[in-house]
Nucleic acid binder design. Structure first.
Lengths: 123, 123
DNA sequence: TGACGTGTGTTACAAATGTAACATATACGT
DNA sequence: ACGTATATGTTACATTTGTAACACACGTCA
């Protein structure tokens, strides 16, 4: 499970909020944020699809992108990696401390907690 | 303030524990961990010095390396960046939640807390 | 039917990072 | 003085990521 880079995470965030979206639609959202040209956005989307971070479909004759993994699953991986390497905390993590981040809903936090702190060998 | 990569962080960790160290000494500690050849370690050390992550001195006719920034300062930057981009938590962070990480002593946690949550415009 | 906008495939190049060899200098022991 | 180990300088090449242009196909509108 390859971790998304910072830019890739930005794209994933807009897609978690609303998917599937076309490259053009994604560009309208992340272009201003990342100051990217449409080409750049498209290249990054292609690479994300290659890496199976995104799934590709065709709707109304256009390519649309959907995240393969849920927000909770992806962020749990990113967080696990971070705490492992930076703080060397291998065991359960104090996820309650982050619950006031607006990034996830209550249900998503519940899923993330489960993923981080319970059985760890799926996927 | 360039953030250290994962490998660079590994090197910084051994130097925070004991510095200054020569390339050879560092290799003895990180080589097994990272499965690196001596050359690789040396290249990374050079680049870290270029980026001013490490300071270079000569002791007993050998080059020795010392971290420029303290563990607390470096980790506070890394953590700030992480919570910003991943969880979009911009304000104060619940650092108490991490205090059982063995990475830092009580005093270092105190420094890190101060850096993360108080005035934010030094260095 | 021909120009134009939009979608898509392909290619390009630079910087950062991972990973390492080669070559040279220098000190230390014999 | 000579060989040998260690230290240091330099160079190399691949992969990932950032950043983007070029070229072509297709549908729509005049």
């Amino acid at each position: 499970m390859t971790q998304p880079s910072k830019s890739e995470l930005t794209i994933l965030k807009v897609l978690w909020a609303e998917a599937p979206l076309s490259a053009r639609e994604i560009q309208e959202k992340v272009g201003p944020l990342l100051d990217w040209s449409f080409s750049t956005t498209r290249t990054t989307l292609s690479r994300m699809a290659e890496k199976s971070l995104l799934q590709l479909d065709t709707r109304h004759r256009v390519r649309v992108y959907t995240p393969v993994e849920s927000k909770a699953r992806t962020l749990s991986g990113v967080m696990r990696e971070f705490f492992d390497t930076v703080l060397e905390m291998k065991g359960p993590l104090p996820t309650a401390a982050f619950h006031d981040s607006k990034m996830l809903s209550e249900e998503e936090w519940a899923e993330l907690d489960r993923l981080l702190n319970e059985s760890h060998d799926d996927d």
